[in-house]
Each structure stands twice: as structure tokens, then as C-alpha cells.
């Protein structure tokens, strides 16, 4: 038998912080971001959107053309080094018009998201927090608004209001927030029974404070995911209205308007249809990919 060496009986070295957490703690948002980064499709969507937004902001600035100058001797030019995407029936440069269109589409999308965020979250929050009769009445109103076909009434509304960006945004605002309100309410009904809300109430926090500081942060993930779906819906909404002829006022260009104009001359001038179509589809596709990725990242339980 081998002799057991003495050093095996040394007292264990005292480590000062055995209980310290070795890995850095990861917050909910860092965790979500990590999951999102792993989702290649979603990241592709995000990157494409950033690039498109960059072009939408800077491309019209650094071009020697603008969206409304008509050069009647240069109508229907094919794409060339002078006009990268060619020109339209009035000799306007399509490259600049397309990027203006992206600008307007994104602006409408973001404005709609902002309205959704404020109105939808507040409505849903108030309805859920107060409950009882308030909730009942607010829900009945919601059900009626929900049943009204938005896209159709919006056409009517804009025919009377006159076309333009603000009309489109207002028309969207009439009932675009309903889904958000429903989602937020459903989630908050579960949350408001939890202890931290009771604690806040016991400490004398007012309803507005409880809703905005305690409940909203807890449904933020859901809200963000919903917003990424609202933006493409609003962009589609604008394009649809422009296509049927009540959208943006000329000479302003939106993607829907460009597609609509392009469709009329597509037989002989396909480039007028092609470029706006590609960009429009790219925006919608990217937002949908990003939305799906965010949903998986922010709500791991929902993952399929």
C-alpha cells in the first residue's frame, strides 16, 4: 500500500466568495436580445429595416433630383446612370420618389404605432385596472368599434376629409388601436391580482401610477411585439388607400401611390412597377420577420 502523502490532509483553502454569482446576471431584456440575435431571419429583417431607413433618410438628400420636379423631355426613361431607377410619365426621378415613398410609409407606420401605443395601452390598462362596470362599458364600446370594417370606413372618411398623410393617420387612429387594447387588457387582468399591485396600492399609489409604472412595464414585451405588427399593417393600410385612389396627395409619392401608378403603365414601363413593389414587399417582409423573432425572443413560453 502506498503511503498517503501528507499534503492531502491540508485544511481546505478558504475562498472568500464561494457564494458569489459567477456569471453576470442577465436581465430580461438582455436575455431577449440574446435570443433575438440567434434568430437569423429576425436579424436579417432588422438589418434590412435599418438599411432601408438609412436610405429613406439620406437618399433624397444626396440626390441631384427631387420628387416633384417634372422634366417633360425625360419621360419614361429606363434606369441609367443619371436616373438610377428611371423616370416616370412626368419625367420625375423614380429613385428619389421611391425613397420618398419609403420615408412616408415608414412615417405612417411609426405614427400609427405611436397612436396604438398611447391609446391602446391606456384604454386596455384603464379597462383592466378598474374592472367591474367600467370594464363592462369600455368592452362593449370596443366590441362595436372592432366590428366596424376599418379599411372601408377609412375610404369614406378620407373621401370627405380630403387625401393626405394626416387624414390617413387619423383614419387609422379611429379603430387601429382596438387589438392592442384587447391584448393589454387580457394580460393586465392577470397581472393586477398579483402581490406587487396590492403592495403598491397599500402604499397609496394612485391608479395612474400603478398602471403606468407597475402594470405597463410588465406587459412591455407583449406591447413591443404587437407594435411590430402594427407598423406593417399601417403601411399596408396606406398603400391600399393610395392604390384605390384616396391616399397621398400628388405630387407627393408614397409606395402605394407609386405601385398604383406603375400598375397602369406596367405593360410598357415595367420598371415603374418593379422598384416600388420590391421595396414595399421588403419592408413588410422585414417587419413580419422581426415581429416573429421578437415574439419568440420576448415570450419564450409561447415558443413552438
Amino acid at each position: 500500500m502506498e503511503a498517503i502523502s501528507k499534503e492531502k490532509f491540508q485544511p481546505a483553502e478558504k475562498t472568500a466568495n464561494v457564494e458569489a454569482i459567477v456569471r453576470p446576471s442577465v436581465t430580461y431584456w438582455q436575455d431577449a436580445w440574446r435570443r433575438l440575435k440567434k434568430n437569423r431571419m429576425a436579424m436579417a429583417g432588422l438589418i434590412v429595416l435599418i438599411i432601408l431607413a438609412g436610405f429613406a433618410i439620406f437618399a433624397p438628400m444626396f440626390s441631384s433630383h427631387d420628387y416633384k420636379t417634372q422634366v417633360l423631355k425625360d419621360t419614361f426613361l429606363k434606369p441609367s446612370s443619371a436616373h438610377w431607377f428611371g423616370t416616370d410619365q412626368l419625367g420625375r426621378d423614380l429613385w428619389v420618389r421611391v425613397w420618398w415613398g419609403v420615408r412616408i410609409s415608414l412615417f405612417i407606420g411609426l405614427a400609427a404605432a405611436a397612436i396604438d401605443l398611447v391609446v391602446g395601452v391606456l384604454y386596455g390598462g384603464i379597462s383592466a385596472y378598474f374592472g367591474g362596470r367600467v370594464d363592462d362599458i369600455m368592452q362593449r364600446i370596443l366590441e362595436i368599434i372592432y366590428a366596424i370594417p376599418l379599411l372601408l370606413l377609412a375610404i369614406l372618411f378620407i373621401v370627405f376629409m380630403g387625401p393626405g398623410i394626416s387624414s390617413i393617420i387619423i383614419a387609422y387612429a379611429i379603430s387601429g388601436w382596438v387589438t392592442m387594447a384587447r391584448l393589454v387588457r387580457g394580460q393586465m387582468l392577470l397581472l393586477k391580482e398579483q402581490e406587487f399591485v396590492l403592495a403598491a396600492r397599500t402604499l397609496g399609489a394612485r391608479p395612474a401610477r400603478i398602471i403606468l409604472r407597475h402594470l405597463v412595464p410588465n406587459v412591455l414585451g407583449l406591447i413591443i411585439v404587437q407594435l411590430t405588427y402594427v407598423v406593417p399593417t399601417a403601411i399596408f393600410f396606406e398603400a391600399f388607400l393610395s392604390f384605390v385612389g384616396v391616399g397621398i396627395r400628388p405630387p407627393m409619392a408614397s409606395l402605394g401611390k407609386l405601385i398604383s401608378e406603375g400598375a397602369q403603365v406596367m405593360r410598357y414601363q415595367p420598371h415603374l412597377l418593379l422598384y416600388p413593389t420590391i421595396l414595399f414587399s421588403l419592408i413588410l417582409l422585414s417587419f413580419n420577420l422581426l415581429g416573429d423573432g421578437l415574439r419568440d425572443a420576448l415570450d419564450p413560453k409561447m415558443r413552438k
Partner: peptide, 22 residues
């Protein structure tokens, strides 16, 4: 399916009409 959601009918329509039809 995703492409179907992202590309609305007013885009599919003209493209179909142009490439398959014309």
C-alpha cells in the same frame, strides 16, 4: 406563407398580370 402575408394582392395582381398574362 410569410411571403403571402408580406406581399399584398395589389402587388401580386399587377405582377401576375404582367408576367403570366402579358
Amino acid at each position: 406563407a410569410l411571403v403571402g402575408i408580406s406581399i399584398p394582392s395589389f402587388v401580386v395582381g399587377p405582377l401576375l398580370s404582367l408576367y403570366v398574362g402579358v
